[in-house]
Design a protein around this nucleic acid. Sequence first.
DNA 1: CGCACTCACGTTATTGTATAACAATTGTGC
DNA 2: GCACAATTGTTATACAATAACGTGAGTGCG
Lengths: 160, 160
Amino acid sequence: MSDPAPPLEGFAAHDHRRCRTETLAVAERLSTERGLKLTPIRRRVLEILLEGHRALGAYDILHRLAQDGLGSQPPVAYRALNFLRDLGVVHRIEKLNAFVVCTHPRDAHVPAFLICRKCSSVAEASAPSQGGLLGAAAQAGFAIETSVLEAEGLCPDCQG
Amino acid sequence: MSDPAPPLEGFAAHDHRRCRTETLAVAERLSTERGLKLTPIRRRVLEILLEGHRALGAYDILHRLAQDGLGSQPPVAYRALNFLRDLGVVHRIEKLNAFVVCTHPRDAHVPAFLICRKCSSVAEASAPSQGGLLGAAAQAGFAIETSVLEAEGLCPDCQG
DNA sequence: CGCACTCACGTTATTGTATAACAATTGTGC
DNA sequence: GCACAATTGTTATACAATAACGTGAGTGCG
C-alpha cells in the first residue's frame, strides 16, 4: 500500500514537534468539549498520523496498532479514524483512500490538498473561495454541506 | 450500493436526448481519432451512465452489463470505464467510488462536482480558477498535474 | 500466404477498503 | 443498584480494484 517512503514532513519546513503537541492538545480539548474521550487507541492513531504529513491507509494504521497491542480488526482503526474526523483533526484523502492530520484544526475551512503521487506526502491549504463553485451551486439550487479539493502532482522533493 | 433512486437527470433541466446522442457521437469520434474503437461493451457502459446524471459504482454497471450478456467479471467493467475516462467522457467521483458522464467533454477543464448525498445525482461545473490553489501550490514548489473539486450536499429535488 | 503485432475480451484468483451486526465492558448519574 | 451512553472486541461480509494469464480478431507487410 504505502511506499517505504522517506519521513518527509510536508513541503514547507515547520516546527513539527510543536505541530505534534499542539494537535494532540487540540484533540484532547475538542474531545472533552464534546463529553467524549481521547482514548489510548484514538490518541495512538493520531500520533501515528502525526509522525509525518503523509497519507496513511486505514490498514497501515491498523497494522501499527496491532504492533502496539491495541487492536487488530478493521473496525478498530475505522472507528478511531472516524472519531478523529468528526473532531476535525483528521481528513480523508479520497483519491488515495487514506488519511492525514489536519494542519490547521480549529479554523472552519474548505480543505484543499496537494498530494504527491510519488511519496504520498500531503500539504493542506485552505481553499479560499472554492473558485466560484458556491455561485454555481446556489444557481443550481444545490445546498453544499462539505467540499474538498484534491490536487495530485509532484512535491518539491520528488521533482528531481 | 446505489439507491433505487428516481431517474433524476441532473439539477438543471436540459435536453437529455440530445445530451445523450452528442456524448455518444463525441466518444465515437474521439475513439476513431486515436485509432481505437468504441466497442459494444464500451458503448453500452457509456449508455448506462447516460441514462441519468448519477454516479454509478463499477459493480452496478457490471450487473447491468451481465444482464445484457456483455460480461460478468470486474475487469470487463473497469476496462471499459478506464477507456472512457481516458477519452475524457467519464469522470470518477472519488467520494463515492463511482463514475459519471462528463457533461462537457472536449473542453479541457478542472472538474468540479456537486454530489447529492441522497440520490447520488451529480452536476458538473468547471472550476474556474481552482480558488487560488495554484498560487499556494506554486509557492510550495508543488507541480499540480490533475485536480478535482467535490462538494457534497443536497440537490434541489432532495431538499424537501 | 505466413508472421508479427496490437487491440480487445474472457477468466481465475487475489488484494485492498469498509461496514454491518452483535456481544462485552466500563463509567457516570440518579 | 440500576439505567444509560460510550467504548471496545469480534465475526463475518460486502464492496472496490487489479494482477496475471490466455484467446481470438484485425492489420500491415515481407
